[in-house]
């Protein structure tokens, strides 16, 4: 499973499907405000695309797509985006995670919440995607050096 498969059909199908899954993931992420979807589902779909590549073309060959040694750091960055937003809101004089006190005063509060949600969901997407890939890599001991 960590190695490359020997069947060309599987490999071609994997290579072809993974970008489509990831495209759907991005769509789902941005569609979250208007219908079912959002940061978490988008992140899971993006992660599923990467895992499909990991399984079909082999862990070594898919390193160029998402490197195993960077996933944990990226997951942390995703979480920092979320927690950092909250801290910035405290510095802006509000409660923790109060988007109405973010330092972008030219927007009216409702739209600040709108973009605040979008920004936070960006953090969720990045964090969930890389976090799930990290767990998979660790279970299968994908080499990361």
């Amino acid at each position: 499973m960590t190695g490359q498969t020997h069947s060309p059909i599987i490999e071609v199908a994997g290579r072809g499907l993974a970008p489509i899954i990831q495209l759907i993931g991005i769509y789902v992420f941005f569609h979250g405000h208007y219908g079912p979807g959002g940061g978490f589902q988008g992140g899971v779909l993006l992660a599923a695309g990467v895992l499909l590549l990991r399984m079909t073309v082999g862990a070594e060959n898919s390193q160029a797509h998402v490197a195993a040694k960077r996933t944990l750091t990226n997951c942390a960055i995703g979480a920092v985006i979320f927690v950092g937003t909250g801290i910035v809101a405290i510095l802006g004089g509000g409660y923790f995670l109060d988007y109405a006190h973010l330092p972008v005063q030219w927007l009216e509060p409702a739209y600040m919440r709108y973009y605040g949600i979008l920004f936070v969901e960006l953090g969720i997407t990045l964090g969930v995607m890389t976090g799930l890939i990290t767990i998979y890599d660790d279970i299968l001991e994908v080499d990361y050096a």
């Binding site: 979250g32 405000h33 208007y34 219908g35 079912p36 959002g38 940061g39 978490f40 996933t71 944990l72 997951c75 942390a76 995703g78 979480a79 979320f82 927690v83 909250g86 923790f96 995670l97 988007y99 409702a110 739209y111 919440r113 709108y114 605040g116 949600i117 936070v120 969901e121 953090g123 969720i124 964090g127 969930v128 890389t130 976090g131 799930l132 990290t134 767990i135 660790d138």
Partner: peptide, 30 residues
């Protein structure tokens, strides 16, 4: 929040700390 999807608003605004906890849980698992 000018967002039609109520689940999204509750998730990321009214109860955003739960969601932060959720993201931290993912990080904790990783």
């Amino acid at each position: 929040a000018k967002t039609p999807n109520m689940v999204c608003v509750v998730l990321a605004d009214y109860r955003s700390t739960d969601t932060m906890g959720e993201l931290i849980v993912v990080f904790a698992g990783a």
